[in-house]
Design a binder for these strands. Structure first.
Lengths: 335, 335
DNA sequence: GTGAAAGCGCTAACAG
DNA sequence: CTGTTAGCGCTTTCAC
């Protein structure tokens, strides 16, 4: 049996309350007493029981993190941002993969709440009414990271996805491209589908270019789907001269698919990705892409959560981080 | 205030014990009673408090995972394997990044133990004496994943790194290569340095090829360090005709560095990586690499941990998973 | 500056 | 099949 606070108290010849005070750094303890207690702790190899502490204090110093897939290079980076800030504020993280599955997500929220987490960072697809209902019932604060809440009911941290894509496409139209392909995620996906698609259409419209359905392909975010998509694009009667993809991995696929069929990037085809994951510099030519500050989104979300957990006043409920276009080898001109 | 088991008991007109029984699926409850309790739970929106349960039952259904860096494509894959199996066995995961820093690692072990985790999966560099001492004090089982314990004191899941590298190098020598470069991790790293280096030397020796110091460069596992290393290798009086790298990312760097200087892979230079992360098929030519079952290493570690946690008999304390060489475009011949 | 005592919400004998 | 009763190990008033 591990020694308890009671054992330490006895060993040190003081009360449990006093031991508790020194363990928690309460200054109202005479230095001599503190010393005695510390010695007893050392002698016994006492290790405070955080579960008991949690029950008594109603705080677990643990936050829940719901993430679609930790093995994704995209989410893993976000997770790292979250974890670093959590550590900084002395919180631990319970990490759960949801695979963006609504049932799982809702179930996980519940599990985390049962475990008495002090807050939750949620990353997922869309916040549906069912999600919202569940989240509203949460006795602890929830922050959405890289996740759109159509009603802006919950605190969230994002970039302006629509504008970001608009920037990317506008960059391309300014270079004179008239036929710009878009390799999108499923349109139901609020960020990678809907928002980005909206940015694409908006930019075309602003440039006075007619929208053509042929030029939009729905991918599944994988390299393979990029390879496949270029094939389809290139077999068009009027193939695109530039392609934008909603993530970097598909962009690599597009580059490779183009090269496989003897085309060269950026001469024959310019390519712009999205995210600026580490992949972007791990291709030749290097990938021009929209920089989304993944780590920061995670870090800021967690920081925001700490504010809510401490019941601090928060000025902005919905934070929007800056993005920019990083021009590299897969596009011709320098921006 | 959230309703407690006591509130539910009162609402349903039964005792706490009965409520506890239905919540825990104990069959010794009359169906009628069960129904009443369930209804009360529903009505009150009761959510069991896992912390209280943990205190009373001395089980947290939570396991700790110490990982060097979750944002690494390598470890993220391991983590996913761990998490999936944990979920399967109804455990949650407290995830902690250690950056392979010994002090952090030891501190994290302690924190996890304070939080009363039921077990720990540890991934890290080396198990030093200090680590061992700390781990020995753990009241709960610990399993090492992709981590070498020189004394084989703790349960672990790995592949035979030395043999795996030997296989890769032997494949190259069999193709007639006499000068094979190795882009290694720091030699102090027990797996990526020491073990792999040993496999390299062994294979050369078996092939009757003299070892040459020029042909070993220490990298830092990044793409850039691969690019840089080829530069150095190629400026040698007698440059290597094939290069083995201890991870895939450096291999991509090697390929790109070679291509940047006008060489073609595999014609002018053959390249073999290690890990078979998703990167391997995201380059041109695609990367021949040693397949290490990352997800499985994570999954098996977690499975092993569940056995220890359940006090089941375990036949093999130290498990060694199979590896193989996947031949792709960066080497000439098919194996 | 220190101690006594009452819980925190639940499980786990033990009775009945 | 159900209820009673101790705790689990700690925090937190409230006294002194």
């Amino acid at each position: 049996m591990n020694p308890t606070i009671y054992d330490v108290a006895r060993e040190a010849g003081v009360s449990m309350a006093t031991v508790s005070r020194v363990v928690n750094g309460n200054p109202n303890v005479k230095p001599t007493t503190r010393k005695k207690v510390l010695a007893a702790i050392e002698r016994l190899g006492y290790r405070p029981n955080a579960v008991a502490r949690g029950l008594a204090s109603k705080k677990s110093t643990t936050v829940g993190v719901i993430i679609p897939d930790i093995s994704s290079i995209f989410f893993a980076e976000l997770a790292r941002g979250i974890e670093d800030i959590a550590t900084m504020y002395k919180y631990n993280i319970i990490l759960c993969n949801s695979d963006q599955n609504k049932e799982k997500e809702i179930h996980l929220i519940n599990t985390l709440l049962e475990k008495q987490v002090d807050g939750i960072v949620f990353m997922g697809g869309e916040i549906t009414d069912e999600h919202a209902e569940q989240l509203r019932r949460s006795p602890v604060p929830v922050v959405l990271a890289a996740t759109i809440d159509p009603k802006e009911e919950f605190p969230s941290v994002n970039i302006d996805y629509k504008q970001a894509v608009n920037d990317a496409i506008s960059f391309l139209t300014e270079q004179g491209h008239k036929r710009i392909g878009m390799l999108s995620g499923p349109l139901e996906d609020p960020i990678n589908g809907y928002q980005k698609f909206a940015g694409y259409r908006e930019a075309l419209e602003q440039a006075g270019i007619a929208f053509s359905e042929d030029l939009v392909i729905i991918g599944d975010y994988t390299h393979d789907s990029g390879v496949e998509a270029v094939g389809t694009f290139m077999s068009l009667a009027q193939p695109p001269t530039a392609i934008f993809t909603s993530n970097d991995e598909m962009a690599l696929g597009v580059i490779h698919g183009a090269q496989d069929s003897g085309r060269s990037v950026p001469e024959d085809l310019e390519v712009v990705g999205f995210d600026d994951t580490r992949l972007a510099t791990m291709v030749r030519p290097t990938l021009s892409t929209v920089v989304q500050p993944l780590y920061d989104i995670g870090a800021v979300s967690m920081r925001l959560l700490t504010k809510y957990m401490n019941k601090e006043e928060v000025s902005e409920h919905t934070v929007c981080l800056p993005h920019r276009l990083e021009s590299r080898g897969s596009t011709k001109s320098l921006s």
